[in-house]
Nucleic acid binder design. Structure first.
Length: 323
DNA sequence: AAGACGAAAGTGGTTGA
DNA sequence: TCAACAACTTTCGTCTT
């Protein structure tokens, strides 16, 4: 049996018209019954109705908030009518998946044929962007979990990657490389900085490639540039202290030491890990929880010599300040 | 003996001509 | 593109606790 041709042009034209009507309605819509422009939106029911005559104009509004849950059937304050997860940028279609299962619902004959046709159209309408995002966001999720990073970073990285796709920065670059650069940038945005080497190890991607892609992201994405701060030693201290099993007192002391010594921006151009390591070294001695230079150097992924150089520098500044 | 210190030589990245 | 430079690393010998 020959397959029935689908007239995509007609279909797209129809969809565009529908979209225009919707967009117009969002800005300036009048009730078709009484002509009133006083409309009310009921977010709970997902309805838009006329304030004058009460006619319902739209009953399929999407609620973007988190789902409510009723823990007791006697609780009158919330109901369970809101179904499904909230929208999330971690999914290619933001979680608003539309699928057709032609076998479901007991459809027969012509009905089932229509269902098949709709499924086919729906599948073909998925854009290239959506298809490529599927792979990239999966890769992102795996890398983030391998590195043990919080979900907040995953979401920020997903947003950066989407922006990169929109700005057409993927062409000519590997998806993994851009994903890794997005994660590196997201870590800095979320103030949980990781070094290029750490991201490279987690993403199984070259450190140079990530650095190169990161520079491109920063130069082309202006929103990102505004959000990313310079990684400071203080941002590294909490993590290193936890790894070295040092108390929060040492952690606070180290942070205040960095602030005292480098409040004038003197740490610029210096490896923040080195500054953090030296501050932790001094703080651990002063708070009687001493760690050796070797132990700290190992955790901070730098050498003992760098700790010594920063240590000397900081001690010189401290004697100046403390007298 | 372990940890700290310092010198010397080499590496990789940045900057400016 | 290349030289100059600062920061950092590696290695190794010496000093201190």
């Amino acid at each position: 049996m020959p397959e029935e041709e689908i007239d995509y042009d007609a279909l797209f034209a129809e969809m565009e018209t529908a979209e225009e009507v919707l967009q117009e309605g969002e800005n300036d819509i009048a009730c078709p019954d009484c002509g009133s422009r006083s409309l009310v939106t009921d977010e709970r029911k997902g309805e838009v109705s006329c304030n004058e005559c009460g006619v319902i104009l739209d009953d399929e509004q999407i609620e973007e908030g988190a789902p409510t849950r009723r823990f007791s059937k006697d609780d009158p304050t919330v109901d369970n009518s809101h179904h499904g997860a909230p929208m999330s940028i971690l999914f290619p279609d933001k979680g608003l998946t539309t699928t057709f299962n032609p076998w479901e619902g007991g459809a027969k004959g012509e009905n089932r044929a229509t269902q098949f046709k709709m499924k086919k159209i729906n599948d073909r309408l998925k854009s290239n962007k959506e298809r490529s995002l599927t792979g990239a966001l999966g890769d992102l999720a795996r890398t983030v979990s391998r590195m043990g990073l919080p979900k907040q970073v995953q979401e920020a990285a997903a947003q950066i990657y989407r922006d990169a796709v929109d700005a057409q920065l993927i062409r000519g670059r590997s998806i993994e490389g851009v994903v890794a650069a997005s994660i590196y940038a997201a870590c800095r945005v979320c103030k949980v900085p990781r070094t290029l080497d750490e991201v490279a190890a987690g993403a199984r991607c070259g450190r140079k490639e990530i650095g190169r892609n990161y520079t491109t992201l920063m130069s082309k994405l202006t929103q990102l540039k505004q959000k990313v701060g310079i990684p400071s030693a203080e941002d590294f201290i909490p993590r290193y202290c936890t790894q070295l099993k040092l108390s929060s007192a040492v952690q606070n002391k180290a942070i205040s030491l960095v602030n005292m010594c480098y409040s004038d921006g003197g740490a610029q151009g210096k490896n923040p890990s080195g500054v953090a390591a030296a501050a932790i070294y001094i703080a651990s001695i002063r708070m009687d929880e001493r760690r050796t230079q070797r132990e700290i150097a190992e955790e901070c992924d730098i050498t003992e010599v760098t700790i010594r150089n920063r240590y000397k520098e900081m001690m010189a500044r401290l004697t100046e300040i403390e007298g």
